[in-house]
Amino acid sequence: MKLTAFKSATIGAMTIMAGPCVAQEAMIEVNYGYLPVPTMPLFAAEAHGLFDDFGVDVNLIKFTSGPAQFQSLQAGSIDLAQGALAAFYMASTRGLEAKWVYNIGDASAISGLVLSEGNSLESYADLAGQSITAPPGSILHLFHVSQAMDAEVDFDQVDFVPLPPPQAVSAIQNGNVDAAWLWEPLLSIAEANGAVQVRNASEIGLHDVFGLATGADWVESEEGRDAVARVSRALTAGIEAYEQDPGPTLSKIEEMTGIKPELAQSIIARTNWATVTDQVAESNVFSLTGPEGSGAIIDWVDDRALAAGLINSSGAGADFLDPRSATMAAQ
């Protein structure tokens, strides 16, 4: 994981700001839905007490799937839900009343296409007549759609087998499918059992931006926006805490996800992490306001998802993004 001097200065400023926050403002309670993946800023903030430092009482609630998070967010049983921008945006076209408020990172470098042992791939068009799996409706599903469109392969020429990630690993290992789009740590598990990675999402220009969504009503309240700003500052400060001492974060990751420190470190090093200032930058994949940021990703999602029938109509587009809390946090 590499940080620019500008990012380092931003993180340092967040750390300095933490001290007086609790003394001046009352704590805000937040129910935060997370997935069991090594989200370094989250677990660093938890391990180092940074949420408390920034005046937010975070209750971490574990989920193992996006749809379960969508339901809890809609019901108001969680305030923040962590996951992929693409997945939450597509859910919003189906009625999920949510806003996207913070980008945590880009996991494209730990997302890839693997083939079953003995298979080869010169072009994505070679998958015609073969089978491929990915979690249905996920960013990995969209990666498949995008690659097929770019190679001018009709969707019905490839047998798409929708499987949740653990079952996808088993399917590729057992030769039940010819190819699979996977995330880490499942990517490494598949490779260790004979699968061969032939595409890396980052290397072919794709983005797997993940972050935080909140209920549309909650973020309209002053307390909701303030809570998101505080969480955002704590996540940014967590990056520096990890850089200075990764041990507590790695221990927290193992405790809450089961992922061992060596693999967690590898995933963290290959993930591009975002700070609060990235959210309001003009030329940045993480920008909630700039033309090259999250709005451009949403346009990409709309195009692919509509073409593949994953959504029936376009959603709110850039209006799905709510930069107000990030703007507060960056000041």
Rank of each mutant, 00 (worst) to 15 (best):
Ile189Ser: 09
Leu182Ile: 08
His141Asn: 14
Gly211Lys: 08
Ile132Met: 08
Leu206Tyr: 13
Asn176His: 10
Leu187Gly: 09
Ser138Glu: 08
Asp156Lys: 07
Leu187Val: 09
Phe210Cys: 15
Ile172Val: 13
Ser188Gly: 10
Thr133Tyr: 00
Thr214Met: 15
Gly175Asp: 06
Ala201Ile: 09
Ile189Asp: 10
Asn193Trp: 06
Thr214Ile: 09
Val145Met: 06
Ala195Glu: 04
Asp150Thr: 12
Pro136His: 00
Thr133Pro: 01
Glu191Asn: 05
His207Asn: 15
Ala190Met: 05
Asp208Phe: 08
Ala201Phe: 11
Ile172Cys: 03
His144Asp: 13
Leu142Ala: 08
Asp126Ala: 10
Ala148Val: 06
Leu206Glu: 14
Leu212Glu: 15
Leu187Met: 09
Val145Leu: 04
Asn200Pro: 07
Val198Leu: 05
Gln197Thr: 13
Ile172Tyr: 03
Gln147Trp: 07
Leu127Asp: 05
Ser131Trp: 01
Phe143Met: 11
Val196Gln: 10
Trp183Tyr: 12
Gly175Tyr: 03
Gly211His: 08
Leu212Gln: 15
Phe155Lys: 07
Leu186Val: 02
Ala148Asp: 06
Pro164Tyr: 01
Pro165Gly: 02
Gly205Ala: 14
Ser138Met: 05
Gln197Val: 04
Asp159Tyr: 04
Pro135Phe: 03
Leu186Tyr: 09
Gln157Asn: 10
Leu182Asp: 02
Val198Ile: 10
Ser202Ile: 03
Leu212Cys: 15
Trp183Phe: 13
Pro185Arg: 04
Glu203Val: 09
Ala171Arg: 02
Ala171His: 00
Val161Ile: 13
Leu163Gln: 01
His207Asp: 15
Asp156Ala: 09
Phe160Val: 08
Val196Asn: 08
Gly137Phe: 05
Pro164Ala: 02
Asp208Tyr: 06
Arg199Trp: 11
Asn176Asp: 13
Ser138Gly: 12
Val145Lys: 05
Gln147Asp: 09
Ser202Asn: 13
Ala192Gly: 12
Asn200Glu: 09
Ala190Thr: 02
